[in-house]
Every structure is written in structure tokens, then in C-alpha cells.
């Protein structure tokens, strides 16, 4: 854990200060409801505030169980801290997105759903509950935060999949949470809606929120700050997506663990193998710019190979 430099990954400057991690777990054993023995055994790790972290792994590996433990739906032993406080007192700062989102709504309209979350926050923090105009203003603020532009009185059942996912996030934020656990909430969305969710997660991270995603979509991993592999009851140390897809010495964890790399990565690897260049793009922009430099002969510069982890000097 210690060798992984979280602060190199985050784009959020506030995450680099000496704040306690958004979530930290030590020697955690998690047993789901009805199971005899723990699904996750002795896992430790942490995620600083302002990061988007993807959790990947085969079905049944314990990713969902981990999330359920963090929101109090699965029994766990070990230490768990939220923003440096004990989980028991700060658990309201962690919220989870469920699949299907429609099943998690208690309100009948967008307004009601967010109002419930605001009421929940008021109760947990012993605040005064906003009323009338103030409530409506706050509901609109949360909708703006997640980019949900529908009328307040739209019934939740009439929302599209992407809008439902955004409403679930707005609800979680309104209830005072700043650590969001998204359990495959993007799986049923179309590519445009998935891309919109990715940029929403990035915006949330830039404003200090922390997002943990369980996903099978490798494009989500490309867009995350770090990726953790959950397998056979254990959890890997966090890796940067670049390490995950390109590896250190030709052996990428992505392949070893049986994930199929996306098209962009596969094409880039062929170029990398053919030229020996340090070409490890994660986005189309990086790919295009890296390729233009590569063909201009700049990649073979000795300086380029020194830091195998990064292409910042290339792009």
C-alpha cells in the first residue's frame, strides 16, 4: 500500500494535503448475511478523498459484499474508518447506489426522493429541516450538481436509466454522503449515458467527493484514478490504470487476471511492441498525440524510457 503514491493520481489538489483518507480499512473480514465463513479475509487498504477508484474482479469475488459492509448491510470484523473517524459514528458519509435504481427510491417524484435524503441528513446531523422555498432551492442545487434537468414533479418511474442513476447520486449527496459506492450502476446504460456518468464522477471527485465503482466495463477503468482487483477473497493493492493495462515489464495485470483490454489499449500495445517506444495512452487524445510524437521520432529519446510509468513528457 505504502509504495502506491495516491497523490500522484488525483487531480484534486485538496486531496494531496494531509487529510485522513476518505475510507480506510485494516484487517477486515466480511461475512455476508447468511454465509458461514467470511467472503473477504484480512483485507487492508485505503482510498483518499477526491479519487475515483474502480474495483474489478470476477463475479462472486466479494466486491459487492465489501460495499455492503461499508454501508452496514454485511457483518464485518476489523477496523474501518471514514475520514479518520470510526465507521460507527461517520457511516452516514458513505452511501451506496443499488441496482436497479428504481428499487431504491422511496419518493414518487424527483422532488420527494431528494427531500427524503435532505430529511435524513437533517436527522443524522440534528440540523433544522429546510422548509418550503429553502427546500425547493436545495433540491434544485443537488439536481444541478449531478446535471439532472427534469421537472421537479417528474415521477421517478418515468425517468430514463441515466436519469435514474443521476437521481440516486443526487439523493446520496443530499443525504450528506461524500463517499459514493456505485455497484455496477452503469451496466444497463447506453455508451453515451455511461460516458456522462464518467464525467460526473470526475466532477464529483474534483469537488472532493470519493467514488468507488464496481464495474466490468474496462472503459470505466481507463477513466479511474486507480484500480483494485478483488479476487478469491483478497484485494490487490491499488494500481494506476496505466500499470493495470500496460504493466511494468510487458506483463500486464489486466491480462494475467483475465480481463479483456479495450480496443485502444490493444492497438497501442502493438505500436509499443513494434517500436519499443514508451507509448501508453489511456485516452484518444493521448493516443493521437503520442502517436504523432512517436512517428516524429521523439519517443526513442533515452529520457523517455527512464520513467516507464508515465507519458506526461510525451503528451
Amino acid at each position: 500500500m505504502s509504495e502506491f503514491q495516491w497523490n500522484r493520481l488525483t487531480q484534486n489538489p485538496s486531496a494531496q494535503t494531509a487529510r485522513p483518507p476518505a475510507i480506510a480499512w485494516r484487517h477486515l473480514f466480511v461475512t455476508p448475511h447468511g454465509a458461514a465463513k467470511p467472503v473477504l479475509c484480512d483485507v487492508s487498504g485505503e482510498v483518499p478523498a477526491g479519487c475515483v477508484v474502480a474495483l474489478v474482479g470476477p463475479n462472486g469475488a466479494g466486491k459487492t459484499t465489501f460495499f455492503r459492509a461499508l454501508v452496514g448491510l454485511a457483518r464485518f470484523e476489523g477496523e474501518l474508518a471514514v475520514h479518520g473517524e470510526a465507521w460507527q459514528t461517520a457511516r452516514w458519509r458513505v452511501q451506496m447506489g443499488f441496482q436497479p435504481p428504481a428499487a431504491s427510491f422511496v419518493g414518487q417524484t424527483v422532488e420527494e426522493e431528494i427531500a427524503v435524503s435532505i430529511a435524513a441528513r437533517a436527522t443524522h446531523l440534528r440540523e433544522r429541516e429546510p422548509d418550503g422555498r429553502a427546500l425547493e432551492g436545495e433540491i434544485r442545487d443537488w439536481m444541478r450538481t449531478v446535471g439532472l434537468s427534469v421537472p421537479l414533479n417528474r415521477p421517478v418511474d418515468a425517468l430514463s436509466g441515466g436519469e435514474m442513476a443521476k437521481l440516486a447520486i443526487a439523493g446520496a449527496l443530499a443525504s450528506g454522503a461524500d463517499v459514493l459506492l456505485m455497484d455496477e450502476t452503469q451496466a444497463e446504460l447506453d455508451p453515451d449515458a455511461r460516458a456522462a456518468m464518467r464525467s460526473l464522477f470526475r466532477r464529483l471527485a474534483q469537488t472532493g467527493r470519493t467514488v468507488l465503482l464496481v464495474t466490468h466495463d474496462m472503459d470505466d477503468v481507463l477513466a479511474a484514478d486507480a484500480v483494485m482487483v478483488v479476487k478469491d477473497g483478497s484485494m490487490s493493492a491499488p494500481m494506476s490504470p496505466r500499470d493495470f493495462f500496460y504493466g511494468d515489464n510487458g506483463q500486464a495485470p489486466c491480462d494475467d487476471l483475465g480481463f479483456e483490454p479495450p480496443y485502444l489499449i490493444r492497438a497501442a500495445r502493438h505500436i509499443r511492441d513494434a517500436t519499443g517506444a514508451d507509448f501508453a495512452p489511456l485516452t484518444e487524445q493521448e493516443f493521437v498525440e503520442g502517436w504523432r510524437r512517436a512517428v516524429a521520432g521523439q519517443v526513442l529519446d533515452a529520457r523517455a524510457r527512464r520513467d516507464a510509468d508515465s507519458v506526461e513528457h510525451l503528451v
Partner: peptide, 24 residues
């Protein structure tokens, strides 16, 4: 299954401890 997810979501949000918002 739908009901189970709802119960889980309410439990995770600890809504059973929250009075329904009278502002509505």
C-alpha cells in the same frame, strides 16, 4: 427481489430512523 433491494437501500440510508419529511 425488488422488495429486498428496497429494504437494503432503506437500511443503508438508515431511513427507518428518519421521520418522513413533513415539508412535503
Amino acid at each position: 427481489r425488488f422488495g429486498e433491494t428496497t429494504a437494503d437501500a432503506m437500511e443503508a440510508r438508515r431511513l427507518f430512523e428518519v421521520p418522513p419529511p413533513s415539508a412535503l
